[in-house]
Amino acid sequence: MTAFQEWFSDFSNEFYMCFIKEDRYKLLVSGVGVTVKVSLLAVFIGILIGMLIALCNLSKRKPIRFIGRLYTDVIRGTPSVTQLMIIYFVVFATVGLDKWIIAAIAFGINSGAYVSEIIRAGILSVDHGQTEAGRSLGLNGFQTMTRIVIPQAVKNIFPALCNEFIVLIKETAIVGYVGLMDIQKAGDFIKSATFITFIPLIGTAIIYYVLIKILTLLLHRIEIALRKSDMR
């Protein structure tokens, strides 16, 4: 047998052990499901919190600005693993919510701090003349914000928001700490069960990569659609 054949036979054997035997691929498939649903809900919560905190940061009232600053400061100043564990074992310790929902809330709270900065910068990037034009027509501050400023800000912040979304997906790889079986944890489980390291870990990396690649392509399409009004 040549060296290559030998290597190939080892590889296929290990591949079988990792993915086929005892239907282990199913762990990874359901892991993808966990990662995706935690990420999606977290992004949603993150954007809601981000908008709220951004509005706090842009408020004319000092105490409200202080709340916004404090939030961003605390979240950015502590590791997300610590936050996740506090939310899971302390805050929601006695609440009977699904694990993945609690995890999504924790990641949403974390992401909100970063999203708020993105949104704040986006709102400030819209020319003040736009606000003046809206107000001069008789629109109130809220109408001007929602109909004129935010739609333009969204276009400006969309790339940064996509980036935050991608960071968030990878960040969720720590949900194993609270006992959720996501992609990372599934790969890890297979590694422990088979004593094989290379294939499960590289497999995990490839799955994350493909997931994020698909998402990037999707988001890029949305971005092009958003830029419609810039075309001449």
Binding site: R135, L137, L139
Partner: peptide
Amino acid sequence: NEVRQKMGMVFQQFNLFPHL
């Protein structure tokens, strides 16, 4: 806001809404 509805304003920089 009601008063401003009676007064149209035109700006030096036009300030049209570019997304509409």
